[in-house]
Design a protein around this nucleic acid. Sequence first.
DNA 1: TTGAAAGCGGTACCAC
DNA 2: GTGGTACCGCTTTCAA
Lengths: 339, 339
Amino acid sequence: MSSLPRKQSVTAQDVAHRAGVSRAVVSRALSNNGSISPDARERVLRAAEELGYQVNFLAQGLNRRRSHLIGVMVSRISDPFRSSLLDALLGEIQRRGFQALVSEIRSEQDLARTLRRFAQFRVSGVIVTSGQPPETLVNECVSQQIPVVGINRQPDIPFVDYICSDNACGATLAAGQLVGNGCRRFGWLNTSHSTWAGRMRGEAFYQALSTLGVDITRDWQALIAPTEGYDGGFQAALSANEHPEGIFCANAQLACGFLDGMRQRGRHAPDDFQLIGFDNTPQTAQYSYQLTTLHQDVAEISRQALTRLLERAEDPQQPSRTTWVDVQLIHRRTSPLSQ
Amino acid sequence: MSSLPRKQSVTAQDVAHRAGVSRAVVSRALSNNGSISPDARERVLRAAEELGYQVNFLAQGLNRRRSHLIGVMVSRISDPFRSSLLDALLGEIQRRGFQALVSEIRSEQDLARTLRRFAQFRVSGVIVTSGQPPETLVNECVSQQIPVVGINRQPDIPFVDYICSDNACGATLAAGQLVGNGCRRFGWLNTSHSTWAGRMRGEAFYQALSTLGVDITRDWQALIAPTEGYDGGFQAALSANEHPEGIFCANAQLACGFLDGMRQRGRHAPDDFQLIGFDNTPQTAQYSYQLTTLHQDVAEISRQALTRLLERAEDPQQPSRTTWVDVQLIHRRTSPLSQ
DNA sequence: TTGAAAGCGGTACCAC
DNA sequence: GTGGTACCGCTTTCAA
């Protein structure tokens, strides 16, 4: 318990002094910005090294009116898909030299508070993976030149960019697979308060089926899970009376719950029914599930998100863009490849 | 695509002007710090409201030498326990009015870089949930008066506080349960490169068994999973030749994998063996697993972590403290209550 | 190329 | 109680 030296942090002034130049030169040397002689540059860099100098990001940000922070809005991180998306986002954010500010959103109020807080930190960008921030709120960001990108959100706010998995394509693949496997009656499982992405998947599934010649009015039904997640899927399986042969499911958690609920009733995939989920979470690959599912490419989504953010930082007035990221059908046991 | 008003953000100066006072008064009114007349205070607050004034945290932090940021170091967020811990931490951090800076650590290098970066943002504290930062590195924080707390880390650095689940107690509960259920031969499943917490659980399990009269040399064995997580547990189940009746497992992912691996070999809990895991992740509660497990109270852990952080901010020189958080045995199917 | 100086937006001390 | 003012640490003109 000896008392430690209470070293005040070293500033650009200290470096300047040691290198025998002015603070301005130090700044230039470190930011590669403004002209400087190779010699001075060298001396500064060495001095900085020797002193263990680290830029004060608060001061830097105050000046540049922009921190090296990127705000990420998430919710229910403990959901496997969400956490893997967050994982990928963090990786990408760090790779590009930014630092993530992450906030969990539990209500509309949180949403507003968080967005303001992000602005107060002069973030370089905001990534929304959850909730639908009201347009007026987002405009506070836009007017402060803070780029905003939504992931799997409904693309409806001007000057905001969107990155979405290609839900329609995924649903079409699922429909094709189930039809090809000989299913006749189809089900669509989703929660009642679905996200936009979920609804989109459902609609595209419906469309794809009818295109494939399925008699929608007779052979299609919607199963509504009472709650989100695994439990919702489980309940849905228990409560439904008569089940279709081919079921497409809005996400992986619902699908796993549904599978287990059916098991409890003594019904198993793929013999008694076929099931395709979305998200390809790690759990879907496990021995006890082996769920056929549509893989969302979170790495690519993250890459695109950061790219958009930087582009819009360059040119804030450019028109809103939406990028669709390919999904991939992963064949597992609940819906085998057609023979 | 109409061009938006490019409103510069409103500053304390603007508020001062509108309220007919000086910048200093504005600062006092908003920070409840320093004396001010009720009247002036009122006027400032109203002006701020009307203008939609928001403090610039960068400027504020620069001045106070401390931002309202708390750095959180995590790794492999997509692991269910880790993400639920992060979830709880974020909640608590926000509840206390801070904003989380989160960084994913993938290597020792990341660890150093991240810690420095946190310091550059003048964080109010650092929470380490992953990795073992070298003492010299942590001292850079300590000497800058940045409180550091480790969660489930080995308590070994001066001036750093630690919050840990009571692993020993958990292991003892597990041992008691297995012995009480009539198991004779015991196994301990862990990965070879275990965390400190994992090792501690194993040692306490061993201790508890011998205290309960188990012949350790004959009836105890260690099962080593080749890799982390579900797959590691799965492999371990496949490769072991003869299995003990009662198995305690370092974490939930290993346990689920093990359970599935055993299933593939046609062996099931609790008939063929009993299994107790750690972490009580959502997955362990699911129909297909129903795993008996030790619950870590992530909410309490998070609360304690923040409390320590704030305490040490008050008094940086106080001696290092370690807090043990109770764990709870959740009875499920893989190790039923003794008759 | 370089240094002086004017901020960035607040905070806090000090006279009044 | 209040306003003036000297910073916090860095960036960026602007003249030299």
